[in-house]
Amino acid sequence: MIKFPIIRVITKLLIPYILLFAFYVQFHGDYGPGGGFQAGVIFASALILYGLVFGLDAIKRVAPPIVIEKLMAVGVLVYAGTGFATMMLGGNFLDYDVLEHSFNHKYLPGGQHLGIFLVEVGVGITVTSVMTMIFYAFASRSRFV
């Protein structure tokens, strides 16, 4: 893509807005249907666009595969950890009502809102990292284990 400077400049201009929109969808997704999956795909699309335009080595410097592998596990742990936390507090798996009484703090959202937010963050992290790792696998034509 060195021969196409306009594409490189436009990409550098667009990526911050794509990431901003991904964060908007993530943090406002719990008010509508979903949010974590959509935000994860949008965030990953910014990373993939960067990789397509600037090359695989450039994207691996920005988001190293080892970090992406760790983020896949972190996202699942956030999701599952929210469910196990509700079980430890006396409710069922992902029963957000128990969070209402356990985290009664004036700066933290309560109950349903906190539980859904944590689950959506876990989904967003997982989807972003999995989509990015799929791009790495296809772009390098090798297997990351």
Score class of each variant (00 low, 15 high):
D97K: 14
G55K: 04
E100Q: 09
G81M: 06
K3C: 13
S129T: 02
M1A: 15
I42F: 06
S45Y: 12
V53W: 08
I18Y: 08
F103C: 07
G36D: 12
Y24C: 07
G75C: 02
G35I: 00
V25R: 00
I134Y: 08
G35T: 00
I6Q: 07
L56R: 04
M1I: 13
L77F: 09
M133S: 14
K70N: 12
E120C: 03
Q112D: 03
D57A: 06
M88S: 15
D30N: 10
G115E: 03
M133L: 06
K12H: 10
F4I: 10
Y50K: 04
V127T: 14
G91I: 09
Y79D: 02
R141S: 02
I134L: 15
I48Q: 03
H101C: 11
D57I: 04
I42N: 00
F84H: 03
I7E: 14
I48K: 12
N92L: 14
G122N: 02
Y31R: 15
G32K: 07
T86C: 15
K106T: 02
V74T: 07
D97A: 11
I125W: 07
K12R: 07
H105C: 14
T126Y: 15
R61P: 06
F21K: 14
P16D: 11
Y79W: 05
F43I: 04
K12N: 12
A46W: 00
I134V: 09
V74A: 07
I116E: 05
F93N: 08
M133G: 01
I42T: 00
I15D: 07
R61Y: 10
V98R: 07
L49M: 14
M131N: 04
V130Y: 13
F4H: 01
G34P: 05
Y136T: 01
G29V: 09
I2G: 12
V62P: 11
R61C: 06
V78S: 01
I42Q: 00
M1S: 10
L13Y: 11
V127Y: 04
Y31M: 10
G40L: 02
F84Y: 12
A46E: 02
V41W: 03
G111M: 07
F117W: 13
V76A: 02
A137S: 06
S142D: 10
L114G: 04
D95Q: 13
L49G: 02
G111F: 13
V41F: 13
F43P: 00
T132A: 06
I116H: 01
M133T: 10
T132V: 03
Y136H: 03
Y17N: 05
L94R: 01
G36H: 01
V130F: 05
A137W: 13
F54Q: 04
L14V: 05
V119R: 01
F23R: 15
F103N: 01
I15H: 07
A137L: 07
F54D: 01
